[in-house]
Design a binder for these strands. Structure first.
Length: 283
DNA sequence: CACGTCACCTGCGTGC
DNA sequence: TGCACGCAGGTGACGT
């Protein structure tokens, strides 16, 4: 489910807490809390080490900071780090008391009485406990919002391959953080057809793509994520979609009907006029 | 190397 | 109401 902006929204909620009265969702920051116990309800949610060792190792460690790299959440502990990838349907909830929800797979209890619950209906999400986060993150491509990710770097990387632009942008080893929604939105804003061979993207249009990627991600974060079914988090970026999920509706720029095709088994939405395959449109 | 297919899972909406 | 089907924000292991 979550792409970079949703993961970032969760990160900020966990490290800063959420204000409001408790009934309306007030949550403390988890920073500084000490783990007292761990429940694993679906063993395969734990990627590394095995579930038994995971449960035995965590108690006594304190949460020092919550970071993010691509779509991974990084929980820096007083010793080592826990990483979580939410995949399609994962979510993290901070709660206290009461029964576990139906889809909770891993629950981390803190001495302070609160608990962090990894909720994941489809069971695709994974959790790691490692000494060094790089053991998990080593293969990731650049962080799109980092200052070091320049338009020149993107342009050069695009020139280095003939792969179709959409699957390429979704390849986490090429660039870390884009998923199906934000990729379609970025390609639309840059006026690039999703099947365009990367090498055919001009320098000028690569610049526009760089700009679009950073724009849609920043907007997503600002809107608290796209959260189609994360109602409680109030993500509003879904209201900003220009193409995603808009098959049959009019392009907001030219009025042409938005098309849906399959690219690498994924639904892909685009405007056949604004995003023509031939490079003859204004950037 | 680039691409297609399937597997991993559950829940929801739709149409019969 | 029941049921089959298609669909979903992601990734990894295959085969060609």
């Amino acid at each position: 489910m979550p792409e970079l902006p949703e993961v970032e929204s969760i990160r900020q909620g966990l490290r800063l807490g959420v204000s409001g009265d408790e009934r309306a969702g007030e949550r403390p920051s988890l920073i500084g809390m000490e783990i007292s116990a761990v429940d694993v309800l679906w063993a395969r949610s734990i990627h590394t080490p095995d579930a038994a060792e995971f449960v035995a190792t965590l108690p006594g460690r304190a949460l020092v900071e919550v970071g993010r790299r691509g779509k991974f959440l990084i929980f820096h502990l007083s010793a080592g780090a826990m990483l979580i990838h939410l995949r399609m349907s994962g979510d993290l909830l901070v709660e206290r008391g009461g029964d576990y929800g139906a889809h909770q797979r891993v629950v981390i209890h803190f001495k302070q009485g609160w608990r962090l619950a990894f909720n994941d209906p489809r069971k695709f999400g994974r959790v790691w406990l490692v000494d060094d986060p790089e053991q998990v993150l080593a293969g990731l491509g650049p962080e799109p919002l980092a200052p070091s990710f320049s338009s020149q770097l993107l342009a050069e990387k695009l020139q280095a391959t003939t792969r179709q632009i959409k699957p390429l942008l979704m390849d986490q080893s090429f660039l870390a953080g884009l998923g199906n929604i934000y990729t379609d939105e970025a390609l639309y804003r840059a006026k690039i057809h999703p099947l365009t061979p990367a090498r055919q993207v001009s320098r000028e249009r690569a610049e526009a793509l760089w700009d679009s990627i950073r724009f849609v991600l920043a907007e997503g974060i600002r809107m608290n994520g796209a959260s189609i079914d994360w109602v409680y988090r109030g993500g509003a970026f879904q209201n900003q979609f220009q193409v995603y999920g808009r098959k049959g509706q009019a392009c907001r720029a030219c009025g042409t009907t938005i098309q849906r095709i399959l690219v690498g088994q994924r639904s892909t939405f685009f405007c056949p006029i604004c995003q023509s395959l031939t490079e003859n449109r204004p950037v």
